[in-house]
Computed example of a mutant assay.
Amino acid sequence: MHRNSYSLAALAAAAVPGLVPARTTPIATPDEDLDVAGIIGEQGRRVLVQSPSTTASGVRLERDLKVADALSGTPLQGVIPPVLGFVKLSEGGRATVTEAPVGRPLMLEDLQGSSELARSLGQVLARIHTVPRYAAESAGVESFTPEVLHAEHRARILAAKADGYLPAAVSQRWETLLEDEELWDIAPQFIHGDLSEESLFVSGESISAVRDWSSSKVADAASDLAWLISSLDPERFDDLYSAYRDELPTSTHPRLVERAQALGEFAVAEWLAHGVETQDETIISDARGMIADLDADLAQLARDEAERAYDEMAAREAHEDRA
């Protein structure tokens, strides 16, 4: 059951004693089955109310809250808004009210234009990835072995290949990446699992809040970096990754960035699989366009490499003739 902003304000008032809603503000969320609104009280207090409209979204919300609670005793507590109250819903489940995240939702343009903000995000990512496994497991998050993660990637690529959607160059590249054992020799860590503009808030030049923990798991740290390496220009990603490494108590996997790049490419196959599964031609067309772009990039790289090899050979021959 979906609720409008007025109904959400009433839920917030019921969950938080003394809160008198004065106005509401929309909050973007990637979950269409979760109604979310920012509520501003008469005294200027700002809260965030979330109400699931389906059983599945209710399960995700409860998982989100359980993980966030487990993280409250870690260095991430400063970017996780505290829960203020709950209210049972007539159709089952419950709505939750938290302090409103400080600042505003992050936009990629913010990161592109600010080295300091990129470094702040790198530091927050490092703190996420150093959450102790016992804290993650106490929240009931799933843990995946390197073998299981690798098998999932392979199955996704093989499915795309079997459906005839992969050009030869893309197929060969992805198969070569999958066969590189060193690349996938990872130590699983706690990850957010679904980082996006909607899940991050920014205030000034700093990341002020991280939301939506329902997809968190113990898996590959490269997963949280994949969307960033695919979206940011190299200089800004270098700023982020430098701060990430500086914040970590131990060294990173020597090929973490390369694996993040690979996962960014594999995400296209995942998007394609989603389109095929849902029979959504718009998604399928979008994914095929991305694959075509990658195929064109690989063809250009091959041409550039051939030209470099030819130039080097010509230079050697010229040197030998002069000798």
Rank of each mutant, 00 (worst) to 15 (best):
T24M: 14
S214L: 03
R211V: 09
A118M: 03
S143I: 11
R3P: 05
L71T: 06
A162T: 15
Q77G: 10
Q300C: 08
A221N: 09
L117D: 03
A269I: 05
S196Q: 03
E320I: 13
V148I: 11
P26W: 05
L48P: 00
D163N: 13
P82M: 04
F86C: 13
G164H: 13
A226T: 04
E91W: 08
G44V: 09
D31A: 06
R173E: 14
A70I: 01
R46V: 06
S199I: 03
S216T: 14
E116S: 12
A37T: 03
S115G: 11
P146S: 05
A267L: 07
V148P: 05
L108T: 09
V202Y: 02
I128M: 12
E179I: 00
D31W: 03
A9T: 07
D69K: 10
P75M: 02
G264M: 04
H150M: 04
S171A: 15
H153P: 01
R308Q: 15
S206G: 09
S90I: 02
E116F: 08
M107H: 13
R3H: 15
M1I: 10
A13R: 12
R316Q: 11
L34A: 01
E91L: 06
L89H: 04
P132R: 11
F266W: 06
P254S: 07
E99R: 11
L8C: 03
L19V: 05
A139T: 08
E320Y: 13
S5I: 07
D286Q: 09
M290K: 06
T25Y: 12
W271Y: 12
I157C: 04
L200T: 02
D286V: 03
S138T: 14
Y244R: 09
L178R: 01
H253D: 14
A318K: 12
W184I: 01
V141N: 01
I191Q: 00
S171F: 02
D35S: 13
A323W: 15
T29I: 08
S120V: 05
G18C: 08
I186C: 06
I40H: 08
A169L: 14
A209N: 00
L177V: 04
L263M: 08
